[in-house]
Design a protein around this nucleic acid. Structure first.
Length: 280
DNA sequence: GCGCATGTTAACTT
DNA sequence: GAAGTTAACATGCG
């Protein structure tokens, strides 16, 4: 599930659940979630991953940082974890004696509660690193954070301009860190820009509208998702009605004008837009 | 069984 | 070099 808003909600929950507390024990259920670098391949498991995590026991957890879709979580003793949620990763909290949630991969025990990393599809991972290196690794190969380092129209144009469709370029983390398939499409809808427009064909006004739309979309999503339960993430896109304006709504009426939402493949991902509000 | 899925990356083609 | 396509990773769901 995770794009920037989902990762930010995880960051806030980990802060609330663990920051300032001593890590009492580690339950490494699936060794493959500990990797030597941020990668979606479980086959890249770290050989001594268990020992690397055990080295954190007895240390005090700090407050996690976020850049784009990544987390960087400092611990005492000069250690830290980088984390990526992949496609299905999330963190939940349970009582120490409770059954862990299904598909639990890693548990971190703090007092009478355990924080579980859950990831059905196993594209997500944690990476043990030195705390001093963590901030740089956190943003390596990434553009500015789409929420915390917002760009104005001209700066956004400089970073995102390319011959690719604008929605595809918006998803490239080297240009701008944090947008994925859902929120890139939603931001384009908010800005009245067709996702298939070439990212070198937007006017200055359109770049300005897109810059504002990105921040508005991310703030909206974080606010909606932060309303989730205390013991686990409730993503806006899990269960319940679809909260998005165009994503996943092919054929349904546009919430603004009633035109049927269009769906097509773009850069290998299904893309949704309103042909009236977002004219080609 | 089939197609699809919110992420990332490598390999190959145009 | 830029951009598009496909596959791979592993799993669940409708």
């Amino acid at each position: 599930m995770p794009e920037l808003p989902e990762v930010e909600v995880c960051r806030r929950q980990l802060t609330q659940w663990a920051a300032g507390r001593t890590l009492d024990a580690v339950h490494l259920v699936d060794r493959a979630v500990v990797r030597g670098e941020l990668t979606s391949k479980p086959s890249a498991a770290l050989a001594d991953g268990g020992a690397q995590l055990e080295a954190l026991v007895g240390q005090i957890a700090g407050e996690p940082l976020r850049h784009g879709k990544r987390l960087g979580w400092p611990f005492g003793g000069g250690r830290a974890l980088l984390a990526h949620l992949g496609m299905t990763g999330h963190w939940v909290r349970r009582g120490a004696g409770d059954d862990p949630p299904p598909q639990h991969r890693l548990g971190l025990a703090f007092g009478d509660r355990t924080v579980w990393y859950v990831d059905g599809r196993r594209f997500g991972c944690v990476v043990p690193v030195e705390a001093s290196a963590m901030p740089a690794l956190l943003r390596a190969d990434c553009g500015p954070d789409a929420l915390d380092e917002p760009l104005d129209g001209p700066a956004l144009a400089d970073r995102v301009r390319s011959r690719k469709p604008v929605k595809v370029a918006l998803m490239e983390q080297q240009r701008l860190a944090g947008l994925g398939n859902i929120h890139a499409a939603e931001a384009c809808w908010r800005a009245h820009i067709a996702p298939g427009r070439r990212a070198d064909a937007l006017s200055p006004e359109e770049w300005g509208a897109l810059a504002q739309a990105i921040v508005a979309q991310l703030r909206f999503a974080i606010e909606a998702e932060a309303a989730g339960g205390d013991d686990g993430i409730v993503y806006v896109n899990l269960g319940g009605p679809n909260p998005f304006s165009v994503y996943g709504r092919g054929g349904e009426p546009c919430p603004a004008c009633g035109t049927a939402i269009a769906a097509d493949e773009m850069g290998g991902r299904t893309t949704y837009w309103c042909p009236t509000c977002q004219p080609a």
